[in-house]
């Protein structure tokens, strides 16, 4: 991970050029459009959904697409179009809150320990390693099974576990700039640690953290929908793509539309986030391909 020399001196008002750079790339244009549409859909879907998402109608059970129900109905006779339109709300809400929180706490701890260094840092890294060596699903499920599903448990759980890898990234990025002259100068001027972190380190680590955050968002969304799929995410009858796929899977041989609609919803959102993250990384000059995938 190398920081370009331009980013050492942060100029003000970089937002506009970076946005322009992102939008100049096809991946950025497609990605941001998808993400924007999904956020818009999540906000508007309660008012544009043609039917009530929890209205059951036994006469319509597993019925194929028709003029009244464009995407057919699921195994409880609920309108699939309405449920698909609303299926991303919970996922976007939970990950939209948990991602920034995770990047913030992980980033702060990572920068702090990168600055402090020494024995404390060494011990912390071993603990981080230990946490990373456990499969994510095990860590989360143990907490979720104990404390219940619901947003109140999912947000803190995701925030905590997705902040841990961020510690590593933030620490490595801090190490890259810690020996620079301006950090030494600030130390020599007698600035406090908080001031050094806030005014010298954070502005230079921010690019890395933003790319990391965009990537974490898509991984968190994957985790969230996998949890829903396994039955540990949102609770029925809340519409959620993961849960809908899991429900419709059993009837896939004669009612495939029940699977295909939520699959398209979930895939377009995740691909959109990934393309945006790619474009952001390129616009900020951070090579994403060099990162470990998991």
């Amino acid at each position: 991970m190398t920081l370009s020399s331009a980013s050492y001196q942060q100029e003000k008002g970089r937002l506009v050029p970076v946005m322009k750079d992102i939008l100049a790339r096809p991946s950025g244009r497609i990605g941001l459009t998808l993400v924007f549409l999904h956020i818009l859909l999540a906000l508007l879907s309660p008012s544009i959904a043609p039917y009530d998402y929890k209205l059951q109608n036994s006469a319509l059970m597993l019925s194929p697409p028709s003029t009244e129900h464009w995407l057919g109905a699921d195994h409880l006779g609920r309108d699939i179009l309405s449920r698909t339109l609303m299926g991303g709300r919970e996922a976007l809400l939970v990950t939209g809150i948990a991602t920034p929180l995770a990047v913030m706490w992980g980033g702060f701890i990572g920068i702090l320990f990168g600055l402090v260094g020494g024995r404390v840092d060494e011990v912390l890294m071993r603990v981080v390693d230990a946490f990373l060596s456990l499969p994510w699903i095990l860590k989360m499920l143990v907490l979720i099974v104990t404390f219940g599903t619901g947003i109140g448990v999912l947000i803190p759980t995701l925030t905590f576990f997705y902040g841990i890898p961020v510690i590593r990234v933030a620490r490595a990025a801090t190490h890259d700039i810690i020996a620079r002259d301006f950090v030494w100068a600030a130390k020599a001027r007698g600035h406090s640690r908080i001031s050094i972190i806030w005014r010298e380190l954070l502005p230079n680590v921010l690019d890395t953290l933003m790319v990391e955050g965009a990537m974490r968002w898509s991984w968190m969304l994957l985790a969230f929908s996998s949890l829903s799929f396994l039955g540990f995410g949102v609770s029925p009858p809340t519409p959620d793509w993961g849960l809908m796929i899991s429900d419709a899977r059993g009837f896939m041989s004669f009612a495939p539309w029940g699977v295909i609609a939520p699959v398209i919803g979930l895939s377009t959102l995740i691909i959109g986030i990934n393309l945006s993250a790619d474009a952001l990384a390129k616009a900020l000059g951070i090579d994403r391909a060099q990162k470990a995938p998991m």
Binding site: S218, L222, S225, S226, F229, G242, I245, S246, R249, M252, S253, P256, V259, V263, L266, S267, I270, I271, N274, L275, P293
Partner: peptide
């Protein structure tokens, strides 16, 4: 590769079952 990396495993698995098996 982008599709394989981004789409959740349960989605690609479900789609493959649908196509190859059903």
């Amino acid at each position: 590769a982008i599709f394989a990396m981004t789409i959740p495993e349960f989605v690609s698995a479900t789609l493959l079952i649908l196509v190859l098996s059903i």
